[in-house]
Computed example of a mutant assay.
Amino acid sequence: MPQKTGVGDWGRWVVTAVIIAIFVWWLLIVNLELGTQPTKNDGTGLVTDPYAHAKETLAVVVPFLTLILGYWFGVRGVDEAKKTAAAATQDAQAANVKFAVLRATASKSSYEQAVSKYPSAFGR
């Protein structure tokens, strides 16, 4: 049975796509800074390293990427588990109704024979 896509699914797709795009964009930035030599500011004496700055920023972006992907797959699994649980609950309720009808229409002796033959089916 095909799954319906709701607004929540589209929102998750958009956020995931944006985070992945930022991640890929920043990987390209880091790649461009690979050959850059650190420079020293003569006035202040501070050394600036563009590659190190890009790498540090990437270290901030990666956890967001893993967070979004973890959320995406986790929520998807929870949604499927809820659907399965709802279907199982409906099946159990239908079985209970059928059992109640069968018990009401069966004679007492046939019910007792079934209980003695299959006690686990009757919760004993």
Rank of each mutant, 00 (worst) to 15 (best):
A114T: 04
A100N: 03
D42Q: 10
L34H: 15
A114L: 04
K4L: 15
I68H: 04
G6P: 12
A21C: 13
D79K: 04
W10N: 08
Q113D: 08
A104Y: 06
T16S: 08
A52M: 14
V97W: 13
F73H: 12
T66L: 13
P63T: 07
Y71D: 12
R12S: 07
L102W: 07
A87T: 05
V30E: 03
R12K: 06
E33Y: 06
L32P: 11
T84L: 15
V24N: 12
Y118D: 09
A54K: 12
T16Q: 11
V78T: 04
G77R: 04
V75Y: 08
G6I: 09
K82C: 15
W25R: 13
L65A: 00
V115N: 03
P63K: 00
I68T: 00
T36V: 03
L58R: 01
Y118H: 07
A92W: 01
K55T: 11
A54D: 01
W72E: 12
A86P: 10
T16A: 09
A95C: 15
A17E: 08
A17H: 04
L102E: 12
I22W: 05
Q37D: 14
G35I: 12
V61C: 00
R76G: 06
V62W: 00
A52Q: 13
W13L: 13
D42S: 06
G74K: 03
T39I: 12
L32K: 10
V115I: 01
W10V: 14
V62I: 05
Q37P: 10
F99M: 10
T84K: 14
L34N: 05
G11N: 08
N31V: 03
G35Q: 14
I29P: 08
R103T: 07
T36F: 00
K40P: 03
L32A: 15
V115Q: 01
A92G: 00
